[in-house]
Design a protein around this nucleic acid. Structure first.
Lengths: 147, 147
DNA sequence: CTGAATTATATCGCGTGCGATATAATTTGT
DNA sequence: ACAAATTATATCGCACGCGATATAATTCAG
């Protein structure tokens, strides 16, 4: 006979391992990111900028699935560290955009050591990683659709 | 020719969708948990207590993969809400243990509505959910082994 | 051209999460 | 039995993450 409370057992939640693994990953990144003087969240902001030299805050929020009330202070922090600056969009002088400073650019090469350091910590087969990746992005995409 | 910076593209990280999905889940839970006057983290603490009437803080930390500096304030909060209390272990009077109050017990039935509400939000097939679950727990278990 | 609606960014307050550290309780060596 | 070592719990400070809200900038209607 199935327990009435089966559905609220911690072990039967999908949310919990997601939450715990996410925390775990942030912990694993910390020592590596300390070398770059970045937190995990700052790191993912920098990743966006290393790819796209010039973005505005809105795009950043959408890309990272974060709200402006998270991103605004992050950008301030990264600005005070001298990695980014806000300037006029060269294409449209009216728009404010976020760009890398020289120091921020330079960090890109140093950051190459981070994925190497992490990879060996996550004991997943290539296939498991690919599966995980696919399912997670499916969830994110579904969510973005619903809005 | 492969870009030297391929490995630090946001899209090539496994950590990012994990992080983003975890945030997403917390957001999705919020309206449901508001009904119980619980936050997401408080909810997973309560889940442990609904299963095991009587735990100490250490076990709670281990079960939830959290540190005492996260759990201690959480317990204070739950105590102030009247859902839990700290008392002597009936088996060993020297130990302090965390137990449910009547109100905390009562919440268990109300909580049954939460998984129902969430299930329909996560558009995963049963198989995908099972796969995801398996991989995530593998990661957690690996991590626990390493310490 | 101008006030209203929309959009982008910022501020505020709360609740985590954690590293570092302090304190309290327990166990252990002798 | 008792000081030292270990373990459990708590405190502190920082950095998110977000709902609610405020402000600034842009667009739109007439």
């Amino acid at each position: 006979m199935k327990d009435k409370y089966e559905s609220i057992r911690l072990r039967n939640q999908l949310c919990f391992p997601l939450y715990a693994v996410s925390n775990m990953i942030t912990r694993k990144y910390k020592p590596l990111l300390d070398e770059l003087d970045l937190t995990y969240t700052q790191y993912i902001v920098m990743m966006v900028l290393w790819e796209e030299e010039c973005v505005n805050e809105k795009l950043l929020c959408e890309t990272l699935c974060l709200k402006s009330n998270t991103v605004t202070p992050l950008l301030k922090k990264l600005e005070s560290k001298g990695y980014i600056k806000k300037s006029k969009d060269p294409d449209d002088e009216r728009n404010l955009v976020i760009t890398l400073t020289k120091a921020g650019e330079k960090l890109k090469d140093k950051a190459l050591s981070v994925p190497k350091g992490i990879a060996c910590e996550l004991n997943l087969s290539r296939e498991e990683a690919a599966t995980l990746y696919k399912i997670l992005y499916k969830m994110l995409d579904e969510d973005r659709k619903e809005g």
